[in-house]
Design a protein around this nucleic acid. Structure first.
Lengths: 202, 202
DNA sequence: GACTTACGATACGAGACCGTCTCGTATTGG
DNA sequence: CCAATACGAGACGGTCTCGTATCGTAAGTC
């Protein structure tokens, strides 16, 4: 399942150990867990971590990319089984799955590695955070607070959550889809939809 | 403004060229624009791109991290000037600023570089997308469609946007705050808030 | 038992960057 | 003119990883 053994079952000689296959992939995951970025991983390092010769890795995969592909495949999950009764509950199920997945370190290794790479340059990120994000975040929070006082926004919603509610969709668009696809009216659509809610008004 | 020249204005000898300062930072930004990751940048490469000797770089900054810090500082922006009348319009202003910033390549260089690093491993990302994201996305879309047919969700909202509305906040939480902070009831809170909207029900 | 392949270890040459240093030249103040 | 510093270029020794090759040994098939 992990190594691409394909069609030729030559059964002469010593067979490749499946345990070694697993050890290599495990080692890669372990390194990712520990904060390595995908780009920072080296075959050499993985082999070392796995207690395996480099040649043993190269015997199975032609290069890092192919290996990473199998590492990702090893993370396939049973999927969240969305079947339910109320749409609301189904949505909760899906998001809850996302949340758990985020918490489970070894899963979502790729996305996590991207974020880790961010937090890896701690100083850098802090500077970026202070210079760019914090300012925007503060002004956003001010607007939200004002809206709450003026009655334009419900009082029972956490401001912190509220901020993510508005900025999150934009971020998701930028990250998961192509970066370019931030169409003209997007800001209005997000704001109005979040304000109004998506269940039908009475 | 860019290089930290501090307090000692020794005026003997040839002074450092501010143009060179700028050229180095420009080169770094150019490389980031072209898809290099922060981790992948090398002083050697930056100097080459800038048409500058390595020593000239090391004369100004002690290492890559310090240089990157100044590169970030060079991106500081006038901030979105949120002052407005209606909270709704202010929110649109802020999000619109985010959107434009996302489109302006050279700004948001850091965040962009993180994302670029993702898309850099095209094959890898595609695999990850197909294996992990697409499946979840499909089931999410199915639920949303079902909700729309059953009347639990308004019919006039784009399904694509809807999906981002639900998943975005979770992603924002994971990325911008610390990864661990995905508290227990978050999924329910997001779903219920997006469904109900944040403006007061009548 | 003979043959074949996998294995861990390690050597190898190639190449990228690192950070330091030294050229010869340019540009300033004294 | 002279001393001091900056400049582009690049040599230098060092580290790291690459992908290949070669050991002697282990583990299977015929």
């Amino acid at each position: 399942m992990t190594a691409p053994e394909s069609s030729a079952p030559r059964l002469r000689g010593r067979p490749r150990s499946p345990a070694t296959d697993a050890a290599i992939i495990e080692a890669a995951l372990r390194l990712l867990e520990e904060g390595a970025s995908v780009g920072g991983l080296s075959i050499e390092g993985i082999a070392r971590e796995a207690g395996v010769g480099k040649a043993t890795v190269y015997r199975r995969w032609p290069g890092k990319d192919a290996l990473m592909l199998d590492v990702l495949r090893s993370l396939e999950e049973p999927s969240p089984e969305p079947a339910g009764v109320s749409v609301r509950d189904d949505l909760v199920t899906i998001l809850e799955f996302m949340r758990r997945r985020g918490l489970a370190k070894r899963n979502s290794a790729l996305l996590r590695s991207v974020i880790t790479q961010m937090h890896a340059h701690k100083e850098l990120w802090r500077a970026y955070d202070e210079n760019v994000i914090a300012a925007r975040r503060a002004s956003l929070r001010a607007v939200l607070r004002r809206g709450r006082e003026s009655g334009e926004i419900r009082a029972d919603v956490d401001l912190e959550l509220l901020a993510d509610l508005f900025t999150g969709p934009m971020l998701a668009r930028a990250m998961l889809h192509e970066w370019k696809e931030l169409p003209e009216g997007l800001a209005e659509r997000i704001v109005d939809t979040v304000l109004a809610g998506v269940s039908p008004r009475r």
